[in-house]
Amino acid sequence: MTVSEHSPAFHLSASELEIWRGETCVIQDLSLALSAGEMLWIKGPNGSGKTSLLRVLLGLAPRESGRVQWCGRPVRPGDSEFLADIAWCGHRTGLRAELSARENLAAWLPVTGVEPGLSIDQALEQMGLGARMNLPCGQLSAGQQKRAALARLLLSPARLWCLDEPLTGLDDGGVDQVGEMLATHCARGGAVLVSSHQALPDSAGAGRELMLGGMASA
């Protein structure tokens, strides 16, 4: 299942965020907003708080102060309505090395609580893993594992994609394909929040940028 062409408008906003990691303040006084059809590229050097920011926006990690709102109401941790709208692809792939890509996705899918329009096999084939979907993930290369993790996006009906460094380990073809996926998702009325230290491919189309590593807003 993919986002329908006329999905209702939605809006993610964060204001005056302050995030600490241990004894360092990584993000201070940051505000951002994202609506349907938009892509926001969070960039910045290593340690500038890209991952921390995404985790705070998803309610996984605590923030020192500030507000995060989804469609005008505050986001609480474990908020199932909000989480149904989110597809997360973290820096870590979420794949267990002992299981095949197909088994990994089959175990994850029920957690999303939806019936996908696409089968797992189709999603893996689209990501170029048709021949390797039954191998234990431990035997796949880093790039192939990333592809298997990104196949989750094809299975999820979520409107907001949160991707943490989705391009690491991918070859040129893979990078282009991810770019296309992002562009298609935005064109269908979804939104993308993507952190990446490397430039997004041309195929991803234009999006707004948020530079971390200083005070910023977007």
Partner: peptide
């Protein structure tokens, strides 16, 4: 592996 994170971010409890 990050699998726990994905379980926690699912819309099912």
């Amino acid at each position: 592996s990050g699998a726990l994170e994905l379980q926690a971010l699912g819309s099912e409890p």
